[in-house]
Design a protein around this nucleic acid. Structure first.
Lengths: 137, 137
DNA sequence: ACAAATGATACAATTATAGTATCATTATTC
DNA sequence: GAATAATGATACTATAATTGTATCATTTGT
Protein backbone atom coordinates (compact mmCIF):
# COMPACT_ATOMS: atom_id res chain seq x y z
CA UNK A 1 0.00 0.00 0.00
CA UNK A 2 1.40 3.30 -1.03
CA UNK A 3 0.18 6.44 0.58
CA UNK A 4 2.00 8.52 -1.97
CA UNK A 5 2.82 7.59 -5.57
CA UNK A 6 5.88 8.64 -7.49
CA UNK A 7 4.32 11.62 -9.21
CA UNK A 8 3.02 13.08 -5.98
CA UNK A 9 6.42 12.49 -4.48
CA UNK A 10 8.20 14.21 -7.36
CA UNK A 11 5.76 17.09 -7.27
CA UNK A 12 6.41 17.56 -3.58
CA UNK A 13 10.17 17.48 -4.04
CA UNK A 14 10.02 19.95 -6.88
CA UNK A 15 7.83 22.31 -4.90
CA UNK A 16 10.04 22.05 -1.86
CA UNK A 17 13.06 22.85 -3.97
CA UNK A 18 11.30 25.80 -5.52
CA UNK A 19 10.31 27.07 -2.10
CA UNK A 20 14.01 27.58 -1.49
CA UNK A 21 14.35 29.78 -4.58
CA UNK A 22 12.54 32.83 -3.28
CA UNK A 23 10.41 34.01 -6.17
CA UNK A 24 12.92 33.09 -8.82
CA UNK A 25 11.48 31.59 -12.00
CA UNK A 26 12.72 28.01 -12.00
CA UNK A 27 12.92 26.07 -15.28
CA UNK A 28 12.23 22.36 -15.43
CA UNK A 29 15.79 21.76 -16.56
CA UNK A 30 17.09 23.00 -13.21
CA UNK A 31 14.75 20.73 -11.29
CA UNK A 32 15.80 17.80 -13.43
CA UNK A 33 19.43 18.55 -12.76
CA UNK A 34 19.05 19.14 -9.05
CA UNK A 35 16.54 16.46 -8.17
CA UNK A 36 17.37 13.71 -10.65
CA UNK A 37 13.80 13.29 -11.81
CA UNK A 38 13.31 12.01 -15.39
CA UNK A 39 12.73 15.07 -17.50
CA UNK A 40 9.58 14.18 -19.48
CA UNK A 41 7.90 12.84 -16.37
CA UNK A 42 8.69 15.97 -14.42
CA UNK A 43 7.49 18.16 -17.24
CA UNK A 44 4.20 16.36 -17.26
CA UNK A 45 3.91 16.85 -13.52
CA UNK A 46 4.72 20.54 -13.75
CA UNK A 47 2.11 20.99 -16.44
CA UNK A 48 -0.46 19.44 -14.16
CA UNK A 49 0.55 21.72 -11.33
CA UNK A 50 0.17 24.59 -13.72
CA UNK A 51 -3.29 23.55 -14.84
CA UNK A 52 -4.32 23.15 -11.24
CA UNK A 53 -3.12 26.68 -10.56
CA UNK A 54 -0.45 25.66 -8.11
CA UNK A 55 2.21 27.13 -10.38
CA UNK A 56 2.41 29.96 -12.85
CA UNK A 57 4.42 29.29 -15.97
CA UNK A 58 6.50 31.49 -18.22
CA UNK A 59 7.32 30.32 -21.69
CA UNK A 60 10.27 31.10 -23.84
CA UNK A 61 13.90 31.50 -22.98
CA UNK A 62 14.43 32.36 -19.36
CA UNK A 63 11.02 30.94 -18.63
CA UNK A 64 10.00 28.36 -16.07
CA UNK A 65 7.71 28.10 -13.10
CA UNK A 66 6.77 30.17 -10.11
CA UNK A 67 4.34 29.64 -7.28
CA UNK A 68 0.84 30.77 -7.95
CA UNK A 69 -0.32 29.46 -4.59
CA UNK A 70 1.75 30.33 -1.54
CA UNK A 71 3.72 27.31 -0.23
CA UNK A 72 1.88 27.40 3.07
CA UNK A 73 -1.38 26.81 1.22
CA UNK A 74 -0.08 23.81 -0.72
CA UNK A 75 -1.02 20.75 1.26
CA UNK A 76 0.36 17.28 0.76
CA UNK A 77 -3.26 16.23 0.93
CA UNK A 78 -4.00 18.46 -2.05
CA UNK A 79 -1.15 17.03 -4.08
CA UNK A 80 -2.37 13.53 -3.37
CA UNK A 81 -5.80 14.51 -4.60
CA UNK A 82 -4.35 15.98 -7.76
CA UNK A 83 -2.18 13.04 -8.70
CA UNK A 84 -3.94 10.11 -7.10
CA UNK A 85 -7.54 11.19 -6.91
CA UNK A 86 -9.57 11.34 -3.78
CA UNK A 87 -8.26 9.39 -0.86
CA UNK A 88 -10.67 6.60 -0.11
CA UNK A 89 -9.69 3.73 2.07
CA UNK A 90 -13.10 2.15 1.78
CA UNK A 91 -13.20 1.98 -1.96
CA UNK A 92 -14.10 -1.55 -3.00
CA UNK A 93 -14.89 -2.56 0.47
CA UNK A 94 -18.48 -1.76 1.13
CA UNK A 95 -19.96 -1.79 -2.30
CA UNK A 96 -21.30 -5.28 -2.54
CA UNK A 97 -21.42 -6.12 1.10
CA UNK A 98 -24.57 -4.20 1.99
CA UNK A 99 -24.12 -5.20 5.60
CA UNK A 100 -25.44 -8.77 5.35
CA UNK A 101 -25.73 -9.18 9.07
CA UNK A 102 -23.01 -7.48 11.03
CA UNK A 103 -19.32 -6.92 10.69
CA UNK A 104 -19.21 -4.39 7.95
CA UNK A 105 -20.75 -1.77 10.20
CA UNK A 106 -18.03 -2.08 12.78
CA UNK A 107 -15.41 -2.30 10.10
CA UNK A 108 -16.78 0.66 8.22
CA UNK A 109 -16.69 2.76 11.34
CA UNK A 110 -13.11 1.79 12.02
CA UNK A 111 -11.97 2.46 8.50
CA UNK A 112 -13.85 5.73 8.27
CA UNK A 113 -12.15 6.72 11.48
CA UNK A 114 -8.79 5.83 10.04
CA UNK A 115 -9.53 7.82 6.93
CA UNK A 116 -10.48 10.89 8.92
CA UNK A 117 -7.33 10.59 10.97
CA UNK A 118 -5.12 10.26 7.92
CA UNK A 119 -6.79 13.21 6.25
CA UNK A 120 -6.31 15.33 9.33
CA UNK A 121 -2.65 14.44 9.55
CA UNK A 122 -2.08 15.07 5.87
CA UNK A 123 -3.85 18.38 6.12
CA UNK A 124 -1.24 19.56 8.55
CA UNK A 125 1.58 19.08 6.06
CA UNK A 126 2.31 21.87 3.62
CA UNK A 127 5.21 22.62 1.33
CA UNK A 128 6.07 25.51 3.62
CA UNK A 129 6.03 23.35 6.74
CA UNK A 130 8.47 20.96 5.10
CA UNK A 131 10.96 23.61 4.10
CA UNK A 132 11.35 25.40 7.39
CA UNK A 133 14.89 24.74 8.47
CA UNK A 134 14.39 22.38 11.33
CA UNK A 135 15.27 18.92 10.11
CA UNK A 136 17.94 16.94 11.87
CA UNK A 137 18.32 13.50 10.35
CA UNK B 1 -5.05 4.33 -2.38
CA UNK B 2 -6.51 1.11 -1.26
CA UNK B 3 -6.04 -0.02 2.27
CA UNK B 4 -7.39 -3.42 1.42
CA UNK B 5 -7.24 -5.21 -1.92
CA UNK B 6 -9.82 -7.57 -3.32
CA UNK B 7 -8.18 -10.77 -2.14
CA UNK B 8 -7.84 -9.54 1.42
CA UNK B 9 -11.43 -8.41 1.26
CA UNK B 10 -12.64 -11.78 -0.04
CA UNK B 11 -10.57 -13.62 2.54
CA UNK B 12 -12.11 -11.57 5.29
CA UNK B 13 -15.63 -12.14 4.02
CA UNK B 14 -15.05 -15.85 3.71
CA UNK B 15 -13.64 -16.06 7.20
CA UNK B 16 -16.48 -14.03 8.65
CA UNK B 17 -18.96 -16.31 6.97
CA UNK B 18 -17.19 -19.37 8.27
CA UNK B 19 -17.16 -17.92 11.75
CA UNK B 20 -20.92 -18.24 11.66
CA UNK B 21 -20.74 -21.95 10.85
CA UNK B 22 -19.60 -23.14 14.24
CA UNK B 23 -16.97 -25.77 13.51
CA UNK B 24 -18.66 -27.08 10.43
CA UNK B 25 -16.40 -27.99 7.54
CA UNK B 26 -17.25 -25.45 4.84
CA UNK B 27 -16.47 -26.24 1.20
CA UNK B 28 -15.40 -23.55 -1.24
CA UNK B 29 -18.53 -24.19 -3.27
CA UNK B 30 -20.69 -22.99 -0.41
CA UNK B 31 -18.67 -19.81 -0.01
CA UNK B 32 -18.90 -19.18 -3.73
CA UNK B 33 -22.65 -19.61 -3.61
CA UNK B 34 -23.21 -17.52 -0.52
CA UNK B 35 -20.73 -14.73 -1.09
CA UNK B 36 -20.69 -14.45 -4.87
CA UNK B 37 -16.93 -14.58 -5.13
CA UNK B 38 -15.46 -15.99 -8.39
CA UNK B 39 -14.69 -19.62 -7.70
CA UNK B 40 -11.09 -19.98 -8.93
CA UNK B 41 -10.08 -16.76 -7.23
CA UNK B 42 -11.61 -17.83 -3.97
CA UNK B 43 -9.98 -21.23 -4.20
CA UNK B 44 -6.61 -19.60 -4.62
CA UNK B 45 -7.28 -17.45 -1.61
CA UNK B 46 -8.36 -20.40 0.51
CA UNK B 47 -5.24 -22.29 -0.46
CA UNK B 48 -3.14 -19.40 0.73
CA UNK B 49 -5.02 -19.28 4.01
CA UNK B 50 -4.36 -22.97 4.34
CA UNK B 51 -0.64 -22.62 3.69
CA UNK B 52 -0.47 -19.82 6.21
CA UNK B 53 -2.13 -22.08 8.75
CA UNK B 54 -5.19 -19.93 9.15
CA UNK B 55 -7.37 -22.77 7.90
CA UNK B 56 -7.25 -26.54 8.01
CA UNK B 57 -8.38 -28.31 4.89
CA UNK B 58 -10.09 -31.61 4.27
CA UNK B 59 -9.94 -33.16 0.87
CA UNK B 60 -12.42 -35.43 -0.85
CA UNK B 61 -16.15 -35.45 -0.87
CA UNK B 62 -17.59 -33.74 2.16
CA UNK B 63 -14.33 -31.90 2.53
CA UNK B 64 -13.69 -28.21 2.85
CA UNK B 65 -12.12 -25.81 5.33
CA UNK B 66 -12.13 -25.27 9.05
CA UNK B 67 -10.41 -22.75 11.27
CA UNK B 68 -6.97 -23.71 12.37
CA UNK B 69 -6.52 -20.40 14.14
CA UNK B 70 -9.31 -19.18 16.38
CA UNK B 71 -11.23 -16.25 14.83
CA UNK B 72 -10.23 -13.96 17.64
CA UNK B 73 -6.61 -14.46 16.71
CA UNK B 74 -7.10 -13.66 13.03
CA UNK B 75 -6.36 -10.00 12.61
CA UNK B 76 -7.24 -7.90 9.60
CA UNK B 77 -3.70 -6.68 9.89
CA UNK B 78 -2.48 -10.25 9.44
CA UNK B 79 -4.63 -10.81 6.37
CA UNK B 80 -3.29 -7.64 4.82
CA UNK B 81 0.23 -8.86 5.43
CA UNK B 82 -0.57 -12.21 3.85
CA UNK B 83 -2.17 -10.86 0.70
CA UNK B 84 -0.58 -7.48 0.28
CA UNK B 85 2.76 -7.77 1.96
CA UNK B 86 3.96 -5.63 4.77
CA UNK B 87 2.20 -2.34 5.22
CA UNK B 88 4.65 0.43 4.47
CA UNK B 89 3.46 3.90 3.83
CA UNK B 90 6.98 5.17 3.38
CA UNK B 91 7.95 2.80 0.67
CA UNK B 92 9.36 4.76 -2.23
CA UNK B 93 9.42 7.91 -0.28
CA UNK B 94 12.66 8.08 1.56
CA UNK B 95 14.86 5.89 -0.52
CA UNK B 96 16.54 8.43 -2.75
CA UNK B 97 15.93 11.49 -0.70
CA UNK B 98 18.58 10.98 1.96
CA UNK B 99 17.38 14.09 3.74
CA UNK B 100 19.07 16.64 1.48
CA UNK B 101 18.50 19.50 3.87
CA UNK B 102 15.24 19.37 5.75
CA UNK B 103 11.71 18.42 5.04
CA UNK B 104 12.01 14.71 4.78
CA UNK B 105 12.76 14.43 8.48
CA UNK B 106 9.54 16.14 9.45
CA UNK B 107 7.64 14.27 6.81
CA UNK B 108 9.13 10.95 7.77
CA UNK B 109 8.12 11.47 11.36
CA UNK B 110 4.60 12.32 10.34
CA UNK B 111 4.24 9.35 8.04
CA UNK B 112 5.81 6.95 10.49
CA UNK B 113 3.35 8.21 13.05
CA UNK B 114 0.50 7.61 10.64
CA UNK B 115 1.75 4.11 9.96
CA UNK B 116 1.92 3.28 13.63
CA UNK B 117 -1.58 4.58 14.14
CA UNK B 118 -2.97 2.57 11.25
CA UNK B 119 -1.24 -0.57 12.45
CA UNK B 120 -2.63 -0.11 15.94
CA UNK B 121 -6.13 0.37 14.62
CA UNK B 122 -5.88 -2.61 12.31
CA UNK B 123 -4.55 -4.74 15.12
CA UNK B 124 -7.76 -4.22 17.01
CA UNK B 125 -9.85 -5.77 14.25
CA UNK B 126 -10.25 -9.54 14.22
CA UNK B 127 -12.59 -11.90 12.43
CA UNK B 128 -14.23 -12.57 15.76
CA UNK B 129 -14.71 -8.90 16.53
CA UNK B 130 -16.45 -8.44 13.20
CA UNK B 131 -18.90 -11.29 13.67
CA UNK B 132 -20.20 -10.43 17.09
CA UNK B 133 -23.85 -9.56 16.63
CA UNK B 134 -23.82 -5.84 17.16
CA UNK B 135 -24.03 -4.22 13.75
CA UNK B 136 -26.84 -1.84 12.96
CA UNK B 137 -26.46 -0.36 9.47
C1' DA C 1 17.07 33.36 -36.89
C1' DC C 2 18.31 30.67 -32.94
C1' DA C 3 18.00 28.81 -28.56
C1' DA C 4 15.60 27.75 -24.55
C1' DA C 5 11.75 27.32 -22.47
C1' DT C 6 6.55 25.50 -21.87
C1' DG C 7 1.83 23.36 -23.97
C1' DA C 8 -0.47 19.55 -25.71
C1' DT C 9 -0.82 14.99 -26.53
C1' DA C 10 -0.02 10.35 -27.84
C1' DC C 11 2.55 6.31 -27.04
C1' DA C 12 5.08 2.53 -24.37
C1' DA C 13 6.93 -0.27 -20.56
C1' DT C 14 6.44 -2.14 -16.19
C1' DT C 15 4.08 -3.70 -12.29
C1' DA C 16 0.12 -4.86 -9.48
C1' DT C 17 -4.31 -6.52 -9.29
C1' DA C 18 -7.81 -9.67 -10.44
C1' DG C 19 -9.16 -13.58 -12.32
C1' DT C 20 -9.05 -18.25 -15.25
C1' DA C 21 -7.86 -22.92 -16.42
C1' DT C 22 -6.06 -27.45 -15.94
C1' DC C 23 -4.68 -31.54 -14.07
C1' DA C 24 -3.42 -34.34 -10.12
C1' DT C 25 -4.74 -36.13 -5.67
C1' DT C 26 -7.75 -37.45 -1.91
C1' DA C 27 -11.83 -39.14 0.32
C1' DT C 28 -16.75 -40.34 0.50
C1' DT C 29 -20.58 -42.74 -1.24
C1' DC C 30 -23.03 -45.89 -3.87
C1' DG D 1 -14.29 -50.09 -7.57
C1' DA D 2 -16.17 -46.35 -10.11
C1' DA D 3 -18.34 -41.93 -9.79
C1' DT D 4 -18.33 -37.75 -7.47
C1' DA D 5 -17.02 -33.91 -4.90
C1' DA D 6 -13.78 -31.89 -2.75
C1' DT D 7 -8.68 -29.68 -2.27
C1' DG D 8 -3.39 -29.09 -4.02
C1' DA D 9 -0.36 -27.26 -7.23
C1' DT D 10 0.63 -24.44 -10.74
C1' DA D 11 0.62 -21.98 -14.96
C1' DC D 12 -1.66 -18.79 -17.59
C1' DT D 13 -4.38 -14.42 -18.94
C1' DA D 14 -6.66 -9.89 -18.66
C1' DT D 15 -7.13 -5.43 -16.90
C1' DA D 16 -5.76 -1.33 -14.75
C1' DA D 17 -2.53 1.68 -12.53
C1' DT D 18 1.84 3.36 -12.38
C1' DT D 19 5.81 5.18 -14.42
C1' DG D 20 7.56 6.67 -17.65
C1' DT D 21 9.00 8.36 -23.18
C1' DA D 22 8.58 10.90 -27.48
C1' DT D 23 7.09 14.40 -30.61
C1' DC D 24 5.72 18.52 -32.35
C1' DA D 25 3.86 23.11 -31.78
C1' DT D 26 4.20 27.58 -29.58
C1' DT D 27 6.24 31.31 -27.05
C1' DT D 28 9.90 34.47 -25.76
C1' DG D 29 14.47 36.48 -25.06
C1' DT D 30 18.94 37.41 -27.31
Amino acid sequence: MKLVTRDTDYALRALCYMAGCQDRVVPASELVRELGIPRPFLRKILQVLHKRKVLKSYRGQGGGFLFMMPPDKIFLFGLIEIFQGRLRLNDCFFKKMACPNTGSCILKKKIDGLERYILKELSSITVASLTRKSGNG
